[in-house]
Amino acid sequence: MRGTEPRLPLWRSVYRAKHAYAFLLPLIALLAIFSYYPIVMALKMSFYQWKGGNEAIFNGLDNFRELFSDPTFYRSLGNVFRFILFDCTVGVLMPLLVAELLFHLRSARLQYAFRTMFVATITVPSVVVILIWVFLYNPVVGGMNAVVSVLGIGPQLWLGGTSTALGSVILSGFPFINPIYLLIIFAGLQAIPGSLIEASVLEGCGRWRRFLSIDLPLVSGQLKLVFILSVLHAMQSFYKPLIMTGGGPGDATLVPGLYMFQSGFSRNDFGYASTIGFVMLIAMLAITFATNKLVRSEND
């Protein structure tokens, strides 16, 4: 199937691959109606001044001009960058660590049990997690100040302090083990041929060495996948800042996703919200493209 076929004229290629197109058809049809059409409509609005009602006034690139000279937007970018920096490193390393630990268990039953439990954590409603952390972060009645006092740090304002708010929101992702990422990486580790592992043991390879030279390269595809997914998720998410701090104090925890939501639903500036969305989309495309190009991996 690979390699040495002569190039066919286009229509021939298309006909040859008619199965391929047929299989793709249901997805494309569904996406065209329920994804592409609304998105194009929404993005179109970034060229308008739209209050969410029935009238929209075309104003060309005005929204974009306003956005690129908007200090709040840049601050939100700075904030989300910190999110990404943390979530996409710790958030990828932790599932990797857990997956590796799972593999070092001798009992397959224990492994199965742990695996199921981690997957089950996906059912926790995020509103519960947020509630707990908001309570923990309360300087007066919560537990965080008590915890850090053990470490010798004085009482903090956490969500209510300008310098601590963003960090507090980021840390509320503890323990940063996303079950889906875990499953993906675990599946990748599972796919490593047993023969390779045996060979390395026979050669007297230490565990750490094996991890670095066998495990890591062979799951780099999955790691890349998880990295991209976590970047995309971090870029778009705003639920936590919305509920925990409303973007504050000031705009210390404002992220682009929240800024977009507020522009639309609080300030009736849906055109501007679309503009933010548009710019975010371009940014995410760029990051994904760059990651794909920079990190070569086995299966792609």
């Binding site: 996406l31 998105i39 929404a42 609005m45 778009q236 977009m260 639309g264």
Partner: peptide
């Protein structure tokens, strides 16, 4: 399969993951 337009189609689909959902609420 290999067929004309495979990569562009794939990336167009993946690009959908990069659209913030709240943006699309009203048009949808």
């Amino acid at each position: 399969y290999r067929f004309p337009g495979r990569e562009p189609i794939y990336y167009s689909i993946i690009a959908l993951m990069m659209v913030p959902t709240v943006l699309v609420l009203i048009p949808m």
